[in-house]
Amino acid sequence: MSAPTTALPGFDFIQKAVDIDGHMMAYVDEGTGPPVLHVHGNPTWSFYWRSLLSTLPGDGFRAIAPDHIGMGRSDKPALAEYPHTLARRVADLTAFVEHLDLDEPLHLVVHDWGGPIGLSWAVEHLDQVDKVVVLNTGAFPLPADKRIPWSLQAARLPVIGDVAVRRLNAFSLGALTLGSGRWVLDAEARRGLLAPYDSPAHRVAVHAFVQDIPTGPSDPAHPVLARLAERLPLLDGHPVQVHWGMKDPVFDAGILAHLEAYLPHAEVHRYPDAGHYVLEDAAAAIVPRVRTFLAAPR
């Protein structure tokens, strides 16, 4: 099953697709060898991983990167056709990994919402996980001393959020500047990151991800994150490498400190001039470190 493709600079990988409970999930699957599963966040897609997807196969790895339902080149169902919840995202990823039918543990690379999704799968399937690479993300409920920025709070409002995020594409556009440690990302990154979200109908999942950010125990995603936080220390027995853009306005130094408390043996790299899109800002430093980390004996 093949997904529709549109050529993008820097992203010329063959697209594959699999049916996940009636919805087409697109993914990239390059190379052979130990599998490396990349799980993206919002409002990105597999394009975000292109610097790793283009290099890891040359190191003898199988680089895999799915697009969440509603994101990238996957199907983009309406709200009434798909729940757009964290629990469903974890279930989708579980089904996707089962589809891969791997005969060895995988390496996991996560960013943003890919953290709660990918790590929630990982802590329930520890025997299927080898090494873990974490980029700016959260893997636990919002700490008591942390508040989400006003811009995210506004985007969660029913009318304002719908106009700003779905109709004006403000969340995706804003992330190009607020998500970077630079003034703005380069043209290749801007074009690629925005490409799938070219109409309000294609931004349903982008908005739904923002609305799903849990701020308290009554929010649907909170129990999933609470379960993840409870089991996250189990991953400290695995090799974990962390890459963190220190100019991230949401996943800041405080969130990193909380993550380190859960994973005290993790190898942590801080990038003072990088933002939330840390792999865009600091690929030249991150990619070689990830390649070395994954290639090293366990």
Results as ranks from 00 to 15, higher is better:
Met1Asn: 01
Ser2Lys: 13
Gln15Ser: 12
Ala17Cys: 11
Ile20Trp: 05
Met24Pro: 00
Met24Thr: 15
Met25Val: 14
Thr32Gly: 00
Pro35Arg: 12
Trp49His: 09
Leu56Lys: 09
Gly60Tyr: 04
Asp67Trp: 04
Ser74Leu: 07
Leu79Lys: 12
Glu81Cys: 00
Thr85Cys: 01
Arg89Tyr: 14
Ala91Arg: 12
Glu98Val: 01
Leu102Phe: 13
Leu106Trp: 11
Val109Leu: 10
Gly114Met: 05
Leu119Asn: 05
Trp121Asp: 03
Val123Asn: 06
Glu124Cys: 04
Val132Asn: 02
Val133Tyr: 02
Asn136His: 14
Pro141Val: 07
Leu142His: 03
Ala144Phe: 02
Lys146Pro: 00
Pro149Lys: 04
Leu152Asn: 11
Pro158Arg: 06
Val159Gly: 00
Ile160Asn: 00
Ala164Tyr: 02
Ala170Cys: 04
Leu173His: 10
Arg182Glu: 12
Ala189Arg: 09
Tyr197Met: 06
Ala201Lys: 10
Ala205Asp: 05
Val206Trp: 02
Ile213Tyr: 15
Thr215Gly: 14
Ser218Phe: 01
Ala226Glu: 15
Arg227Asp: 11
Ala229Met: 02
His238Gly: 09
Pro249Cys: 11
Val250Tyr: 14
Leu256Arg: 04
His258Tyr: 10
Asp273His: 14
Gly275Trp: 11
Tyr277Ala: 15
Tyr277Lys: 03
Tyr277Met: 15
Leu279Ala: 12
Ala283Leu: 00
Ile286Lys: 08
Pro288Arg: 12
Phe293Trp: 00
Leu294Ile: 04
